[in-house]
């Protein structure tokens, strides 16, 4: 919110929203998913743009049109929502054309592209452009970056050991990079990776891109204040 305020945008947070419904949808419980989806559709009926800090939630909205195929009124609303739904970096770079926030973040950083955001929603270049323009940031590529971290929502609970093997391998690669910070665009994946890092007592910091940019902008502001 603070980042967007710098560009004259006040983010609204309609209180009626709950969850996009993906946990139920992916598990095959579409009726239950619809109950959650309706809160999202209603919440943003009057918004021009809808922004979410998760590529996975943003992509979930793309399933609404099919989910509501027997409820034309909801389906129409769902179609409208899909057209104005954006993942955070997609909105910042794609709509606003902002690629450089003037952030300063002097750390070694690596990036995990979450599957739904990058593969299904197609958000690939946006986060890289934003990171490229952060001063002082040393970017190190993550080996096998595109491999799923093993989160998969209820998959991590239902198939816990397969998921555990996947996140352990992801974190092995992360440790190989010797990065101080892992950045991503999806809280589910980040929670998964951070949980495994903590389980293994590894000190790598896990941040959402928004958090990194905000901290970077604050660093720059402090720098300017000290310099003045």
């Amino acid at each position: 919110m603070r980042l967007f305020a710098n560009y004259g945008i006040v983010l609204e947070f309609p209180n009626v929203q709950t969850c996009c419904g993906q946990p139920a949808y992916n598990s095959g419980y579409w009726e239950e998913a619809k109950a959650a989806a309706k809160t999202i559709i209603s919440a943003f009926a009057d918004s021009d743009f809808v922004i979410t800090p998760s590529g996975s939630c943003a992509h979930m909205v793309h399933h609404y049109v099919e989910m509501f195929k027997d409820e034309p009124q909801w389906q129409e609303q769902a179609r409208k929502l899909q057209g104005k739904m954006f993942e955070f970096s997609q909105f910042l770079v794609g709509v606003l054309g902002i690629k450089d926030l003037g952030a300063h973040f002097p750390h070694k950083v690596t990036y995990h592209p979450s599957c739904h955001g990058s593969r299904l929603l197609g958000v690939k270049s946006e986060p890289m452009e934003l990171l490229r323009n952060v001063r002082g940031l040393e970017f190190v590529p993550l080996p096998f970056a595109e491999d799923c971290c093993g989160f998969g929502g209820t998959f991590a609970i239902k198939m816990a050991d397969i998921s555990g093997a996947m996140v352990s391998e992801k974190v092995d690669h992360l440790i190989e990079t010797e990065a101080e910070v892992l950045v991503g665009l999806d809280m589910g994946c980040l929670m998964n990776i951070a949980g495994n890092l903590r389980y293994r007592n590894q000190p790598v910091r896990v941040m959402h891109l928004v958090e990194l940019l905000y901290e970077g902008v604050s660093n720059s502001n402090e720098h300017a204040a000290n310099g003045a």
């Binding site: 709950t18 419904g21 946990p23 419980y29 239950e32 109950a35």
Partner: peptide
Amino acid sequence: HGNALESAGMKGFAGVMSSS
């Protein structure tokens, strides 16, 4: 033919998520 426990959980999910 879903899992009974999961099914109950998802009903709970719908109950919680349909109202903020």
